[in-house]
Design a protein around this nucleic acid. Structure first.
Lengths: 144, 144
DNA sequence: GGTAAGCCTGTACCTGGGTACCGGATTCAA
DNA sequence: TTGAATCCGGTACCCAGGTACAGGCTTACC
């Protein structure tokens, strides 16, 4: 059997395989999400192929609602074999956060539904009866 | 009976009554959300008291998920007695948008729940069986 | 009429997650 | 070996929705 040597990749190759912009790669490096890679003699970055996987993990975590700072911490914790419970704890906290955001959006949805049902026709001078607009004192925060 | 003359308010008074920052007031003026008010001889803005109400409307609309640009358009439409259906149409569109965001967040919530239930312990090297993390190919967009 | 509080314009900065552009250096394939 | 493609660092810019600051003028109250 022949083993293929896992070659180092250059910036553009990593970016393409991971589906991200080259600038994003350098941005993540600055943010501490990916380690500073080795360089060629001329100073070009050369990445191990696992970097592509790592970028996938980062993107997945982002889709779970973690910020880049949070992802960086999670990766850092994992890197130096942090005791254990970090990810789980954070996921629980994030879960609460997401639930909260869902609740806010549901309130917004319900009020919008009322606005539509009541046939409101103006923000400032709605002529409909029982206009729900003045009572739109909903979620404390804009929905982000 | 005596009628109280509704006095003009100065910037700080409007800001305080509406619960917004003074800078925000000027920002909204630049964005076209509130009209340019009359000025005192010395150049200070003097607002009619209705401005406070208007700011409340703007904040309510924001809480319903409308962007400032959208609010500005809605107000503008209302101002020059736009035919009718503008707010209603927009509310319907916004409703769809909100529903979509809720759906995304629900997907995220469910995956996070799985992560917690599976006792995942690491983003990159989770040792739990049936780890849901690699399948976190969820919503296309980060949750904003 | 003095003085403190309030307001003026203009500009810069903030968060979060990137993206774009520049001039110059390097790498790769023919 | 040469020319195209790629990459380098540094800096500036994008979105939204504001917020902050500086230096100077106005207003309000005693």
């Amino acid at each position: 059997m022949t083993y293929e040597i896992t070659r180092r990749l250059r910036t553009g190759q990593v970016a393409e395989r991971a589906g991200v912009n080259i600038q994003t790669l350098r941005y993540y490096e600055r943010r501490g999400l990916i380690a500073e890679p080795e360089r060629s003699l001329g100073g070009h970055r050369t990445y191990p192929p696992e970097t592509v996987t790592l970028l996938g993990v980062i993107k997945a975590a982002q889709r779970l609602g973690f910020t880049l700072d949070e992802v960086a911490e999670l990766l850092e914790a994992g890197r130096r074999g942090h005791p254990r419970p970090d990810l789980r704890e954070r996921a629980i906290a994030k879960l609460a956060e997401i639930e909260h955001r869902i609740a806010d959006l549901v309130t917004i949805r319900d009020t919008l539904t009322q606005v539509v049902a009541a046939r409101c026709d103006s923000l400032t001078n709605c002529t409909c009866a029982d206009c729900p607009l003045p009572y739109a004192e909903l979620a404390e925060d804009p929905p982000r």
